[in-house]
C-alpha cells in the first residue's frame, strides 16, 4: 500500500530526479508590525519548483496570511529574506507575472463583466483586449465559466465569483498560485466542489499552490504537504507530507488513510497551540 502511494506522489518523483533548486526560498523570515506585535518569527521554508500543493495551516491570527503577503511581495519582511533562485528577476524585485493571488473574498470589479475581470491583469500589462481574448476564454473554460463571459459579478453565486477570481489569478500563467482562505466564506457543498475542481486544475496546469487555510480537513484533502504554523508569534511547528495519491476523490475523503492524516495533523496543531513561543510578550 504505502509503496505505491509513494511512487504516485509528484513530490517524490521530482526531488529524486532533478538538482534541487527551489522556486522560493524563505530564509529566517520575521515580521514585526509597527505596533510592536511580532507576527512571524524565523520562518524558513523552501517551496520546490516542481508542482506541489502546500497548505499553510494554523489558527486565525497566527500570521499565515501575512506570510502569504510577504511571499507575494505585497508586504515586506522585517528580517530574513525571500529568494527566488529560479527567477530571472533579481532578488529584490517582485516576481510579478509569476504569482497569482486569490483573496479571501472574490475581489472582483463589480462594474466589469466576468471577461473584463479576468482580462484585468493582461490589461494592466498593456495587452490589447482583442489579443487577450483567446487566453481569457481559455482560463474561463478551465474554471467552467466559459458561458458567463458577459455576465456581471452580481449575477453570479458566491462559488462562481470565486471561480472568476481563480481564473483571473491564472490568466498570466503564473508558476505559483497563492490562495488566502479562498473558500472559507462558501457553503460546504460549494466548497467541496471547488476543492475538487482546484485539484484538477492544479494537476493539469503544473502549478505550485500555496493554500492558506484553518481547516484541517480541507488541507489534508488538498495538499501533498502541510506546513503547520503556530501562533504568537507565527512560526513553523511541523512540516507534514501527505503521502496519498492524486487524483483524490470523495472516496479518499472517507478513507481511513485520510482520517489517519487528519488525526496526525490535528495532534501537531494541538501540540503547537499548547506550547506558545517561549519569549513571546
Amino acid at each position: 500500500m504505502t509503496q505505491t502511494v509513494m511512487e504516485l506522489t509528484p513530490s517524490r518523483v521530482a526531488t529524486e530526479s532533478a538538482v534541487y533548486r527551489p522556486l522560493i526560498s524563505l530564509k529566517s523570515v520575521g515580521k514585526v508590525f509597527r505596533n510592536g506585535t511580532e507576527a512571524l518569527r524565523r520562518i524558513s521554508l523552501d517551496i520546490p519548483s516542481h508542482p506541489q500543493f502546500v497548505s499553510l495551516l494554523g489558527p486565525s491570527g497566527c500570521g499565515k496570511s501575512t506570510l502569504l503577503r510577504i511571499i507575494s511581495g505585497l508586504d515586506t519582511c522585517s528580517s530574513g529574506s525571500v529568494e527566488w533562485p529560479t527567477s530571472m528577476h533579481d532578488v529584490q524585485a517582485r516576481p510579478l507575472e509569476q504569482v497569482g493571488f486569490v483573496f479571501q473574498e472574490p475581489t472582483l470589479q463589480p462594474w466589469s463583466t466576468v471577461f473584463d475581470n479576468v482580462y484585468l491583469p493582461m490589461r494592466l500589462k498593456g495587452q490589447r483586449r482583442k489579443d487577450a481574448h483567446d487566453r481569457v476564454m481559455e482560463v474561463l473554460k478551465l474554471v467552467h465559466l466559459d458561458g458567463f463571459a458577459n455576465n456581471y459579478p452580481r449575477q453570479l453565486s458566491g462559488g462562481m465569483k470565486m471561480r472568476v477570481s481563480v481564473a483571473r489569478a491564472l490568466v498570466m500563467k503564473p508558476k505559483l498560485l497563492l490562495m488566502d482562505e479562498p473558500f472559507a466564506a462558501l457553503d460546504e457543498i460549494t466548497r467541496l466542489q471547488l476543492n475538487n475542481d482546484l485539484l484538477e486544475l492544479w494537476q493539469a496546469q503544473g502549478l505550485t499552490v500555496i493554500f492558506v487555510t484553518h481547516s484541517i480537513y480541507e488541507s489534508v484533502y488538498l495538499s501533498d504537504r502541510i506546513v503547520v504554523i503556530g501562533a504568537r508569534p507565527g512560526r513553523i511547528v511541523a512540516d507534514i507530507p501527505i503521502d496519498a495519491p492524486y487524483p483524490r476523490s470523495e472516496e479518499f475523503r472517507t478513507s481511513s488513510v485520510y482520517n489517519e492524516h487528519c488525526r496526525h495533523v490535528s495532534a501537531q496543531l494541538k501540540a503547537a497551540m499548547g506550547r506558545p513561543g517561549e519569549s513571546s510578550p
Binding site: S72, G73, L74, R94, L96, V99, F101, F103, E105, T107, Q109, L120, P121, R123, L124, K125, M172
Partner: peptide, 21 residues
Amino acid sequence: DRNLIDLYRLYGASKVQTLFL
C-alpha cells in the same frame, strides 16, 4: 476595495491605471 488595490499593486499597475480603471 483594499484587496483590489493590492491586486493592482501585484500586477505593477501605474498610478494612472489605478486611478482610471
